[in-house]
Design a protein around this nucleic acid. Structure first.
Ligand code: ZN
Ligand code: ZN
Ligand code: ZN
Ligand code: ZN
Lengths: 131, 131
DNA sequence: TTAAACCCTAAAGCATACTATAGAGTCAAG
DNA sequence: CTTGACTCTATAGTATGCTTTAGGGTTTAA
């Protein structure tokens, strides 16, 4: 399978596939005599795995590690795999908390402003940022 | 006031101040005869404004715009200022929603995994990413 | 006088995940 | 035989907010 075909099959674009290869997420495929990449069918499932993992927030580096486990499942444990989701869940929870903190602070100054069309000389948002 | 003093006063470091200057958040200060920057006292409050604005999620570019309004409050309206917090609130809400979507999806696959120390051959996390 | 502490500029590096550009070879159809 | 579609490599650019590096001047206290 040539790269354009693969890209279409998985809904990614060609440069992205070459980029993933450069980052070690996709192993170097065989080459045709003209030098074109020639992917095996498994490349499709590997890329779908990558897509799903991205959807749940994993970085490419993490996905690379997950893929390494996936191809040698027998040599790894559920514990090991679960620690990935554990860590990522903690990260995401922290991000959410941080954003909620920001949101609350922002809402507070937002609601205090009259939003009118008089001059901002008395604006409580600006005052809040000044003090 | 020299840059080191100012940096200490606001708890930022020197390079950051020079960076802010390069980005137009801090106006170019006067120079001493030896070429050293010589900041007026107002630089402190300006930097505190920047810090607070960062804390509620504004980017440097947005802060630059807010500062421009702040120094000419009379020529701007509350409406105008409030639109900044409005937009930012929407952005943050979206980010939170996206993260919560991810979190739910991740929790789902996380809890389905036994987390045991047998081999990952049957791991439901890997299966979830494969299908 | 000399060493530490402070200041200067310009440019590059970092992290992330691509995206774009330049310059060039290959292939199939008309 | 040429045009368009496809592929290749290598390199640089994007966004964000710094941080680091390199290579030098200046000031102050001992
Ligand atoms: Zn008002
Ligand atoms: Zn207002
Ligand atoms: Zn298990
Ligand atoms: Zn498992």
């Amino acid at each position: 399978m040539k790269i354009g075909h693969l890209a279409t099959a998985v809904g990614m674009d060609i440069q992205t596939l070459r980029y993933y290869e450069s980052q070690g997420l996709l192993s170097e495929p065989a080459r045709l005599q003209n030098g074109y990449r020639d992917y095996p069918d498994e490349a499709i499932s590997r890329l779908k795995f990558i897509k799903k993992a991205k959807l749940v927030g994993f970085t490419l580096k993490e996905i690379k590690d997950l893929l390494a486990i996936q191809v040698t499942k027998d040599e790894h444990t559920c514990q090991e795999v679960k620690s990935f989701t554990q860590v990522k869940l903690a990260e995401i929870s922290n991000k959410i908390e941080e954003l909620q903190r920001i949101k609350v602070a922002l809402e507070k100054i937002h609601t205090s402003c009259c939003g009118g069309d008089e001059t901002a000389a008395h604006c409580s948002i600006l005052s809040a940022l000044e003090n």
